[in-house]
């Protein structure tokens, strides 16, 4: 196994594009090293992106935030402006593992690992996050929901790297929230996760995005669930519609972490709870 720690994104792309064997990007390593330990990944090349300055900083831009792919959960949690703008995204990322894992794990890694249960992903999608994807001589900006195509699979091409995640500047009276269900209070993988963002006008939901995690092969954006909220003040009727829309969007499996029936049921429960938090954060009367 060859280990490289390039200083620029360009070099990283060149290394990955050139490699004929199994090439992996090492961001936080909290998934890759586990897979190596279990013998599930046997890299010929590992490209460590944590020495690329551009990938390890958070920048506030005119349109929002640019979070480098190597930025750890701990760095994100410490960033006051993002906490204020997108508390749901920060909370979701903070839920990935322990404080030890937080010291290493990254949003981009959480995304590219392509687990259906990734915590930060539904929150990012609900917030309208985008991924900046860099390939050889090319750079494209892709909505986060377009990155993962199935368990362990992404739309990234050989040699492409996610350089950063961007979050938009939230419109006024916008709130977001992410809730997940796990049997333990910590150190667990989501059985169900729900990310919701919404923007209010005079207490009425004007815009909303609802995204479910761990209930389908990928995180699913549920426009019907968003429609259930839009135009409401989060009354019971709207919440009930939200629950129904979420249940309908679920396409889960029975596995060691939960049954399909359980996931479908609890997706609605969490959606309701997350919607209430987001609504309150957007300035709506609780």
């Amino acid at each position: 196994m060859r280990y490289e720690s390039p200083a620029t994104t360009k070099e990283a792309v060149a290394l990955l594009a050139k490699e004929k064997g199994a090439a992996f990007i090492l961001a936080g390593g909290t998934d890759l090293l586990v897979r190596m330990k279990m013998g599930l990944a046997e890299p010929d090349l590992v490209v460590d992106i944590k020495r690329i300055p551009d990938m390890n900083t958070i920048k506030t831009t005119q349109t929002g935030f640019r979070i480098g792919a190597g930025v750890s959960g701990a760095q994100l949690t410490a960033h006051k402006a993002i906490n204020k703008a997108w508390p749901g995204v920060v909370e979701a990322t903070h839920l990935i593992g322990s404080d030890q894992i937080q010291g290493r794990c990254t949003m981009a890694g959480n995304l590219c690992n392509a687990s259906p249960a990734a915590d930060s992903v539904p929150a990012m999608i609900a917030a309208g996050a985008k991924a900046i994807v860099v390939g050889k001589g090319k750079r494209r900006t892709v909505p986060v929901e377009k990155i993962v195509t199935g368990p362990g699979k992404t739309s990234l091409k050989k040699g492409e790297v996610v350089e950063a995640i961007t979050l938009p500047k939230p419109a006024k009276r916008t709130g977001d929230a992410y809730l997940r269900f796990t049997p333990r209070t910590e150190m667990d993988i989501a059985v169900v996760g729900v990310g919701i963002s919404m923007t209010l006008e005079r207490g009425v939901v004007k815009k909303a995005r609802v995204c479910l995690g761990a209930v389908a092969p990928t995180a699913v954006l549920v426009p019907a669930a968003a429609r259930a909220l839009v135009g409401s003040k989060l009354d019971d009727a709207a919440l009930n519609k939200l629950v129904a829309a979420c249940a309908k969007a679920c396409n889960p499996i029975d596995d060691k972490r939960g049954t399909a029936a359980y996931r479908t049921r609890v997706a609605g429960v969490l959606a309701k709870r997350a919607a209430k938090i987001a609504y309150k954060r957007a300035g709506g009367a609780a």
Binding site: P183, R184, T185, E186, M187, D188, I189, K256, R257
Partner: peptide, 8 residues
């Protein structure tokens, strides 16, 4: 220890 859940 991830999925054999002893109390944390």
């Amino acid at each position: 220890f991830l999925d054999y859940r002893i109390p944390v």
